[in-house]
Design a protein around this nucleic acid. Sequence first.
DNA 1: GCGAACTGTATTCTGTACATAGACAGTATA
DNA 2: TATACTGTCTATGTACAGAATACAGTTCGC
Lengths: 130, 130
Amino acid sequence: MERDVQLRIELASPVPVYRQIVEALRTYLVEGTLVPGDVLPSVRSLAGDLGIHFNTVAQAYRELAEEGWLDVSHGKSVRVIEREAPRENDEAAVEQFRTRIRRLIAEARAQGMTSHVVARELNALAGGLK
Amino acid sequence: MERDVQLRIELASPVPVYRQIVEALRTYLVEGTLVPGDVLPSVRSLAGDLGIHFNTVAQAYRELAEEGWLDVSHGKSVRVIEREAPRENDEAAVEQFRTRIRRLIAEARAQGMTSHVVARELNALAGGLK
DNA sequence: GCGAACTGTATTCTGTACATAGACAGTATA
DNA sequence: TATACTGTCTATGTACAGAATACAGTTCGC
């Protein structure tokens, strides 16, 4: 059940490294690449791979534990656990989601990405959700 | 050509206020709600509306000026200018865009949004790009 | 049983970036 | 040409990300 996750972290990004780790792992968890029972690498080994300090990884693990994804306890390996889904489709959350995607799209288009390519990517991602 | 933009800023958000302003205005600019010739509110008046300091607004305006959207010069009102589109569809940029959207989707689903609703939103936004 | 080597935890420190304060300087206009 | 508006600059307080380092629980082989 050892799991060798591959994470791409951008040290130059304005978004903190620990949150990048949270987001990347949460993506694997939601998509089912990581499933209950899987064991994550130790804070020190993952930190070594990423070239950062292990406390930064520990903070990310703690965050995901609070969200209910991980069982992390002193001395033991970190393990993915079963997590019951929270409430559904809160309208305010949907609104916020829409806004954030719109801003991301705007940023992409401002960088020169064409609307055709952006639409293709969005449709592809939407299709993968079925 | 005065333009009364409506911005929604979340002071509690981890993303800095000045960047929220940049993102919101850039969205209007890309979508064509703001067009060349439009005059933006002064840093003091917009800051007053948002309940923040005018230097925070000034920083956002400066950022958008560097991206080529705005003409901001000392003593004069800030004005939207014509901006030539940058390079197209750099593959690394597309890849990064895809990753960021995937992480946003994962966050939404982790909060309880159903895949059906997420897909509906993505398709709607993609459709609006044609 | 015990020690070594592994796990995560807690405390403290430092650099940096956000946001504000307030003086400064250019522009428009009555 | 005075005045009231623009944005600019420099300094400062504060919060937080990230690292250093000592601590403490768990596992496993001998």
